[in-house]
Amino acid sequence: MKTLSKVYTALILLFLFAPIVILIVFSFNGSNSTAVMSGFSFQWYEELFHNSNILEAVRNTLVLAVASAVISTIMGTAAAVGIFRLRSKYLRAALDTVTNIPMINPDIITGISLMLMFVFVGRFFGLSNSLSFWTMLIAHVTFCLPYVILQVLPKLQQMDKSLPEAAMDLGCTHFRAFLKVEIPELFPGILTGMIMAFTMSLDDFVISYFTAGPGFQTLPVLIYSMTKKTVKPTIYSLATIIFFVILALLTLSNLVDSDTDKAIKEARKKKKAKNQAN
């Protein structure tokens, strides 16, 4: 049974990673074939760093991801606080439903629906092309918002209600109590929400595809137009770089996580020892 489970785990991991390994190997291909390996070279990496289209798309993607993460985090955190304090049950149910829509709807529906609205509004104002960086930013903030809200809301529910009350009893205003007491309590949720928003924006293709203007291309949209034609291994070297960046980030965050876990455990132990000593 144990060996069976090990073999099974290995097979699933093989299935998940074989294509990625193949990409990495072929990014060093000496020829421009994407099926036959002949020789070893860095030529595709060189070409990648000389391709101004790709570099610009990388820059665009990062700018868009940072902007939509920041906006959706601020608006989403405020929204979560508002939703949490809402007294009307109906209003709360309505907001919950609306918040769920972008997560349940297929991306293609979200993308098409926003595109149709932008085109309609553009036509209304007599613009020949209404899609731009701004329409994409609106789209990205829209699909990032629910993830931020869903990360912050549980932290609000876990928070000890007497904390902000105590702060106000001690002379804090509502706003100061919120800044000094609630925000630090919510911070882990806010941070996770922001990271999720950032990565969702970074990775999104479908919604970007429908809302991207001709002047502003993100990396996934560019990759799409590149893979419409036969591809050179440049795209593989790009994938390889992305892979190792992600690997490094995930490993780092895992290390940080286990460090904080350890720190928390040790602090608890010390507290326990102290209590026992008393």
Partner: peptide, 10 residues
Amino acid sequence: IPMWMNFLIR
């Protein structure tokens, strides 16, 4: 890890 790689490339 594979989830975070662009799905077009995958």
